[in-house]
């Protein structure tokens, strides 16, 4: 079975609605990417140095990252030589194959689900730099978990930014979940502690903890975050069950540094990639998964409450190569 067929089969198993939404949100991403690849293929008949150079540019423009792209191109060149591929059409397939490979790197090719405690309290900690959409993501995530029938409580751990607590409260109202808060400027670890106690006594399923955005090179703030995490681990066995790093898809190479430093401080277990409904392509997650083995669990595709969708690398790559796959199937 051809790669694209497999890809299509895989996707058709997903509910159409989700796929549509994902495709919808990714339209801009896909449009620019595939039209560029198509363009490239149309212009170059032969697979030569120039072809690879331009392919390199396309991938770099998707923020895939210089190192990753260089490695990818090198592998592609080898593969093309090995399979003795001459025409550019055939290379398309190898390109997407390699991209999925970078992401999974030998792992099970399954979407990563939230690892929650099935019986008892689960704690989700969200972390990230300023302005990536942590609070919004929490609102959407609360909505999602509630729709799955779970009881959810939020802890307003961003006691620093002006208006952050109010913002979380609005999201709490929208999603219909309570928010545990202290006043602005109070100790975030204390808020989280109170959140845990409240979650325990109310017997809720999931507690989602907000934290203040912080740039990863601020050592003191990162230490504060490590302390918050310690409080959570001490109070609940096996917690936090998920530590989600929220990443802005428009971020460039600095995302690597963010992933690395936040992982060191809080042992990040997954990524939420936000603002993917713009023209940014968030290609850096391929490198993050490849280098640090942090999977993407959700993507943010809009401003509505429903606009948080599970990430699936196949869909992601399908999104990038959507038009190509359709063309291929038509040809067959």
């Amino acid at each position: 079975m051809s790669f694209f067929k497999k890809l299509k089969d895989k996707i058709s198993q997903q509910t159409d609605q989700v796929t549509d939404k994902f495709k919808d949100g990714m339209t801009k991403t896909r449009d620019s990417f595939t039209s560029k690849v198509n363009d490239l293929v149309a212009r170059y008949r032969k697979v030569d140095e120039e072809f690879f150079e331009e392919l390199e540019e396309i991938l770099i423009s998707a923020d895939v990252g210089v190192v990753t792209v260089m490695t990818l191109i090198e592998e592609l060149e080898l593969e093309v030589k090995r399979r003795n591929i001459q025409d550019t059409e055939a290379v398309k397939e190898v390109i997407s194959e390699k991209l999925v490979e970078i992401y999974y790197d030998g792992d099970e090719e399954e979407p990563e689900e939230l690892q929650l405690n099935e019986d008892g309290l689960s704690v989700i900690l969200t972390v990230g730099v300023n302005g990536v959409g942590k609070t919004t993501t929490i609102g959407k995530l609360a909505h999602r978990l509630k729709a799955e029938g779970k009881s959810v409580l939020l802890a307003a751990g961003d006691t620093f930014r002006a208006g952050a607590i109010d913002q979380l409260e609005v999201w709490g109202e929208r999603a219909g979940v309570d928010v545990i808060k202290h006043s602005e400027g109070s100790d975030p670890a204390a808020v989280i502690y109170d959140g845990i106690q409240a979650a325990k006594s109310r017997g809720v399923d999931v507690l989602i903890c907000d934290t203040a955005g912080r740039l990863q090179n601020k050592v003191n703030l990162m230490n504060e975050l490590a302390k918050v995490k310690k409080v959570i681990s001490r109070e609940v066995d096996g917690a936090p069950h998920e530590t989600l790093l929220v990443l802005d898809a428009t971020t460039g190479q600095n995302a690597l540094s963010q992933a690395k430093t936040f992982k060191e401080a809080t042992d990040v277990s997954g990524i939420v990639l936000t603002k993917l409904d713009g023209t940014a392509r968030g290609g850096i997650v391929l490198a993050i998964k490849n280098e640090m083995d942090i999977p993407v669990k959700f993507v943010g595709l809009g401003e509505r409450m429903e606009d948080l969708q599970p990430f699936d690398a196949h869909q992601f790559v399908y999104g990038l190569f959507g038009d190509l796959t359709t063309e291929d199937t038509q040809e067959e």
């Binding site: 428009t250 971020t251 460039g252 190479q253 600095n254 713009g278 940014a280 392509r281």
Partner: peptide, 12 residues
Amino acid sequence: VDSMTGQDAVNV
């Protein structure tokens, strides 16, 4: 503009 913006900065 966020100084961490990647390639998309141009489009924005």
